[in-house]
Design a protein around this nucleic acid. Sequence first.
DNA 1: AACCAGATGTAACGAGAATTACAGAACTGA
DNA 2: TCAGTTCTGTAATTCTCGTTACATCTGGTT
Lengths: 284, 284
Amino acid sequence: MTQTVVDQLRESLGSFPVTERRVAHRLLAEYPMAGLQSATDLARTVGVSTPTVLRMVARLGFESYVDFQRRLRDELTAQLSSPLQKPVALRSAGKKAQVHAHIALGEAVARNVEETFANLSAQEVEQVVRLLGDRKNRVHMIGGRFTDALARYLSVQMCIIRPGVRHLQDQEANWRDQLLDMDHRDVLLIFDIRRYQASLLRLAELAAAKQVRVLLITDQWLSPIAKVAKHVLPARVVVPSVWDSSAALMAICEALLAAVTRDNWDYAQKRMRDLEQLRAGAKA
Amino acid sequence: MTQTVVDQLRESLGSFPVTERRVAHRLLAEYPMAGLQSATDLARTVGVSTPTVLRMVARLGFESYVDFQRRLRDELTAQLSSPLQKPVALRSAGKKAQVHAHIALGEAVARNVEETFANLSAQEVEQVVRLLGDRKNRVHMIGGRFTDALARYLSVQMCIIRPGVRHLQDQEANWRDQLLDMDHRDVLLIFDIRRYQASLLRLAELAAAKQVRVLLITDQWLSPIAKVAKHVLPARVVVPSVWDSSAALMAICEALLAAVTRDNWDYAQKRMRDLEQLRAGAKA
DNA sequence: AACCAGATGTAACGAGAATTACAGAACTGA
DNA sequence: TCAGTTCTGTAATTCTCGTTACATCTGGTT
């Protein structure tokens, strides 16, 4: 947007005829709502005729009054997009918790995410990011029964910004084969929350024995895999539900992804462009 | 002002008929600008008829559409009067943001989750829960490139507490076949955030045409699927990263799962016990 | 004093809007 | 599956609004 309507108004208002200037002033005084009424209404409140309003708008360089209003709306949406919309209170609920159980859960998740990040070691995060971002490393990801979705989620996105990333099938028979070719240049990212899965522990131990760097994303009580992992990132998972929440784990994934992307931005950007082209080519 | 229009919308939206609800959602998504257009324009962008918009406004208790618009304007002026006019400062952090960028992201995710739940309609959540919990319905889930992990996540867990839940393969050829057997007893839960996937829209349209109840979990700008969906649950996805965050979507999943589990607790508990036994048997 | 140009309002026009009535479609519960 | 009810879009109506042409007025100039 080259210049906002207010600026235009202030600037050229001086050269306007009296009545039109009055309109401009009203507009500035009640900006921008005054301009979202009908031209007739605006004219009435200012005490001039409708055409005067229209002429003023035309003098500003707009094709029509509708044009002018559209412009105002666009400006407003741009401004409103960020600072407004703050969620109403929300904490107040209290006894209503029963009625709106889902709200309580949402609160809990938000709190979990906060606490999770407050408890993360900045250094550890950095080191994990470096391992995942280093293209000399091959990266493998896997998760448990529920958390495997996270391994998928992260691997799909990580694949976009760098090569050598794969999601391991959680069939034990499958990853046994994969393990064969792994060595100290491999990184294995495992997701494991309670109830911890024995098969994953076996995998982690075997991998560690082969000098594979094992990274673990787990709950606050730490999966036994922590014992063989090079880095551990714990998250809060408790919510008022029968189930645990993996949302904080996902937030960690997203933080890692954001960091890796940022640290390898030049490379990633180029790669993403190439991918776009490939895809576009496939469609044509 | 007793109650803002947004509140009214969120509160009563759940008891609205489908098309009117769609209007309400668009209104919430682009609040309040969407309501300052002409009713006809709004109707067009939502894909319903003008009278539907007017009926929705009437249902909210307004005398006329003009009345409604006046109210919106008044609210806006009240809000705009002081605290705005300045484009978001917020950046203040500066270099510290660089060092602990992951913390900033965590904060943003937490905030997103809060706002997401604050903006959900309790009724709509309930209705979705009922649809997903009703064992007479077959339930299908699918997501887009990134969000499909969520579809997987939720389906895996939902499978545990009730039968008839499946995750659709996101290959277009695959779900085309599945669609053949769907009818009014089926529920299709779709995840779709920007950039919205054309294939999912096709799926949703075909399904809706076959009387399948389409549920949509999307971002705050609403996937075009909203036009054919029976229920829409929007989430905040913006974080300080190149990527969008799906964490709030996951929180919604978990809220839904918690509610469905609670509402069918007797059945679910029994089923889970049976599953345990089966698994123990397999191991022995 | 007469004239002229820009400014302003009045009135008529036409487009598009809100509103209403109605008929067909979809949904609900037996 | 079928009746009764609720939704929803179509189409006709009415009204308001933006737009335009024109007449009046004002102030400054010859």
